[in-house]
Structures are given as C-alpha cells and as structure tokens.
Amino acid sequence: EPLWIRPDAPSRCTWQLGRPASESPHHHTAPAKSPKILPDILKKIGDTPMVRINKIGKKFGLKCELLAKCEFFNAGGSVKDRISLRMIEDAERDGTLKPGDTIIEPTSGNTGIGLALAAAVRGYRCIIVMPEKMSSEKVDVLRALGAEIVRTPTNARFDSPESHVGVAWRLKNEIPNSHILDQYRNASNPLAHYDTTADEILQQCDGKLDMLVASVGTGGTITGIARKLKEKCPGCRIIGVDPEGSILAEPEELNQTEQTTYEVEGIGYDFIPTVLDRTVVDKWFKSNDEEAFTFARMLIAQEGLLCGGSAGSTVAVAVKAAQELQEGQRCVVILPDSVRNYMTKFLSDRWMLQKGFLKEEDLTEKKPWWWHLRVQELGLSAPLTVLPTITCGHTIEILREKGFDQAPVVDEAGVILGMVTLGNMLSSLLAGKVQPSDQVGKVIYKQFKQIRLTDTLGRLSHILEMDHFALVVHEQIQYHSTGKSSQRQMVFGVVTAIDLLNFVAAQERDQK
C-alpha cells in the first residue's frame, strides 16, 4: 500500500453525458421521505430548503428570480454533511469501515464536522487534520463531537509532509485500522450531490432553472449537481466560483495573481482535486475576500440567511453572472454553511477592521482624538531585521541585547519573508524542534498583521487588541530589464502597544 495517494490523481470516472444510468458502476440512493420521529440526527441530513432572495437581486438590477439552496440546514450545519454520511455509508457497505475503526480526514473543517457527527452516532474514533487558518468555532464544535484535532501550517503546499493532507496520511500509516475516506478522491463525494442535492433542486424548481452558481473546494458539490442538471435540464448554465489565490478556475489566465492566501474558508485549493470535473462548468468567476464577507453580511442583514463567507462569494458572483438572465428565468445559488463557524471572524466588526474589510468610518461609535491620525505620526525608528541564514542562537542574543521581542526576517534585497519572535524561538528550542545552530528560517511564521503608514491609529489599535505587534510595510514598484514591473513589500518598522501608548501619553502631556 502506498504511503500516500495524491489528492489530485487523474480521475478514473467514466461518467458521460447521455450515458444510461443503468451502466453506472456505483451504488445510487434515492431521496427517502422522513418519518415524523427521526431514529437519529443523521436522518436530518439532506432535504434542505430552497429560499427566495428578495432584496439583493433587485438591489443589483437582476431581472431573474434568485433562489438560495440553504445547505446550513443540514444536521452539522453545512453541505459537507451529505458527503460525510455518504462516504461512511459506502465504506461500511463495501466492508472497508468496521466497528471500532478510526476515521482520519484532512479538511478545512466542515467535512470534519460532518464526519465527527456521523462518527459520534456510529461509534468510530475520528481524527481531523486541518490548517491553522480555520476558525476556532470549527475546532470547538469538533472537540465537542469527540474528534481529535491536529493543526497544520496554512501556507504548507498540499504535497508537503507538513500539509493537512501529508499529516493525515502519516497518521494513517501509524494508526492500525485507520482510514482516510479522502473527500478529494472519493466518488461518494460527487455521488452524494448527484443522487440527492441535484434531485432536490430539480424537484423544488419543478425542473425549471436557467443558471446554477456554486463555490468550489473539493469540487464534489458542483460536479455532482452539474452532471445531473446537464442530464435533466441541459439549458442550465453552470457557474463556478473560485477565490483569488486558488488555481481551480479555467482558463488558467484567471488564476494569475501574486496573491497566495485568502481568508474565506472551505473553497479554493492549490491543486485540482480528483473529484472535480471542470468540463461540466460553463464559466468560472474569481471572487475576493472583501466581496465575500460584504455579501455574507448582506445576506444575514437583508435576507435573514445566517450563512458563512463562501455563501457571500457565491452570491457576489451570482449578481454578476445572472445579469444575462431575463424576467421569468431563474438562478439558484448554493449557500454551503452557517455563520456559526465564523462568529469571531467576519461577523465581528473588530475582525473586519483588522483585516481591512471594514473602515473605521463605517462604525458610528465615538472615537478618541488620536483615532484618525496616521501611523506615520508615530515617528517610528528604523527596524531591526535579520536574514533567514542567521542562526536561532545568534538571533536570540541580538533580540535580548537590543531589547526586542520580535524581528522581521528579510532577504538580501529587503523583501519581507516573515517574522521571528523570542517566545516562538525559545519554545521551539525547548520542544526540540530546532537547535541553536539551525537557521532562523526554520522558525519563520507568517501569521502576523501588516499595516501601512497611511493607515489610521484606530486601525492599529484594533490590531493591537488581539496581537502583540504589527509590521509596518510599504510597497515598492521595481522595474526589470524586460520592461515588466513587480510590486514588493518592504519593512518600514515594527509597532507595539507600548509605542502607541507612549505616543498618546506624550501628545497629551505636551497639550497640557
């Protein structure tokens, strides 16, 4: 057995438009009618409502009807409940999964919650491996369901041993009777949507819809739904939504950006999952974080739909894509998950301010006199920076000697690579993860907040409520011999709460 199987392995699926269902090699399930009293909570997966979006479509000038398939009504709160249950049931049916076995899954959280929910009911041990950027709410729900959680670096490539995929496979090879159901490759993922989600949409719309818009992560949702719609409703256009920084969209030119990270969760990847059939997507749109969270908040405030950030991405694209539809036509959007997962993220004004998705003037509360002053007023001194090749031991000596707790790590040209902190280095040394002679590049981390000289002290204040420091950066445009230009970030300084307090105190003292 291989040590790991690539999540982007070539698909062996034989589905073709027009091929009889009787030739399918898979076990198919028909939607079942729910009894009045459910035998367990797993029976509350599927049969989610279709809700008309009344205000947002009109606000953006849509002539067509805009409908939302509300997947956050599933038992675990997301569309991923469907595939989690289906993968477990299919693994039980073919004898792969037996009582007492362990389920391991690399996930952005929602599939993990679905699997942990099913594992709690069915009696399996469950280990979820997820990147650090995923919300604390997801972690809390997983723990409450009895799952064990392993976190991995957000910026690790999918084929790196440190990625959530790599760590999951390492655990599988170490733990007896453990299984990775593997949402990236498992046919049960798109089949769950082909058999149930798509049929529900067709039934709820009486077979009449002209466009379907869905955000894409593993691709199982859009693949399964689109294949069924292509068979039953061939005139329906399928629109895929991919965040900026991901590479799922086609044509490839759409993916060209210097951005590699994004805040919206559960969609987009740096590889093409095996289950994603991009041939059934008629057109791709890219979405960005700001519009995703703005539209998610709009869905909550104006439509009462308590959905997550990827739902915002989907609707932001839908109001663009559906401009081509006329009166009497219908566009369906998939709202994948609930706001429950993001209470401390985009639902929080403070978080939105820190990330730059909300401006101070958007909030009406009274601010102190210094709130709208610029960061450049602080008069920061030149920063202490270190090269990635310097040793951890030497870096600790320098920081202690100069009285700093942290320093930016830059390359020879001064471009920011990340940050090192005294606390992080000492804990890594004590844990045996690094040696004093190791290069400081081994303990770089990139989960820090950046701020510009033109940003306000109010925004800085919000950042420092949650973080010990902020890195002050400025952009530099560099022209190359080819005539092309590129933008790079340079370090201007490091600012802490002490710097802000000293500035405010000094100004008030001078005024007296």
Rank of each mutant, 00 (worst) to 15 (best):
N255I: 06
V332Q: 05
F295S: 13
K442R: 12
P383C: 07
V375G: 05
S437N: 15
S287G: 13
T454M: 13
A296L: 04
S486A: 06
V420G: 13
E361C: 10
R350F: 04
S427K: 01
K367V: 14
V434I: 15
K484G: 09
E258C: 13
R297V: 04
P388W: 10
Q256S: 11
T294S: 09
F295D: 01
D455L: 09
L276G: 04
S348V: 12
V491N: 15
D242G: 01
A321I: 04
E258T: 15
S246C: 01
Q376F: 07
P368Y: 14
A431C: 01
Q478N: 13
A470L: 11
V494L: 12
D411I: 10
D289F: 01
D282V: 11
F357D: 01
S338Q: 09
G414F: 12
A318I: 01
T294I: 12
G403R: 12
Q406R: 05
L464R: 05
K320Y: 13
R374A: 15
M466L: 11
K320I: 10
I477C: 07
T279I: 10
T314S: 13
K442C: 12
A292H: 01
D438M: 12
E401H: 12
S485G: 07
L399W: 07
V415M: 06
L501I: 09
P408V: 05
E360V: 10
K320S: 12
L248P: 03
A505R: 01
Y262S: 01
L306Q: 07
L325Q: 11
G441E: 13
Q354N: 15
F404C: 06
S437C: 11
Y445V: 11
K449D: 10
K449I: 06
Q476S: 07
T294G: 15
T294F: 13
T421H: 15
K283N: 12
K283P: 09
Q439V: 10
D438I: 09
R340I: 05
I398V: 08
A497C: 07
D411L: 09
L378A: 14
I390N: 13
W370F: 12
N288M: 05
F295V: 10
N255F: 07
A413D: 01
I238N: 01
G403E: 07
G493L: 12
P408Q: 10
K433C: 13
H462W: 14
M352S: 04
E252Y: 13
I390P: 01
D467F: 13
L453H: 03
Q435D: 14
D277W: 01
V319C: 15
Y262A: 04
G418S: 11
E265W: 04
A382V: 12
Q450P: 01
G441L: 11
V491R: 01
K366I: 14
I300V: 06
A301D: 12
A506S: 14
E252A: 11
I451F: 12
F492C: 09
D455N: 07
I272W: 05
E465F: 05
V472L: 14
V410F: 09
D242V: 01
E365M: 14
E258K: 14
I398F: 13
A322L: 01
L347S: 09
T496Y: 04
L430Q: 05
S427P: 12
L325D: 01
L417P: 10
E508T: 01
T456I: 07
P383V: 07
I463L: 11
I247L: 12
S461L: 12
W284L: 01
E360S: 11
V443E: 15
L387S: 11
M419E: 05
W284I: 03
A431Y: 06
T294C: 06
V415S: 10
K367N: 12
Y262Q: 15
H372W: 12
H372Y: 11
D349P: 05
D405F: 11
R400Y: 15
G356R: 08
I272P: 05
A322V: 01
T274S: 09
T314I: 14
A292S: 07
Y342F: 01
L501E: 01
A505L: 01
A322Y: 03
M466Q: 12
H372G: 14
A407T: 14
D270P: 07
K286Y: 04
S486T: 14
V495K: 04
I416S: 12
T395R: 06
G309V: 05
D467K: 07
S287H: 09
S481M: 14
T274A: 01
H462Q: 12
E253R: 12
T421A: 13
D277S: 08
Q259A: 01
G393A: 12
L384T: 09
T314N: 06
N424I: 09
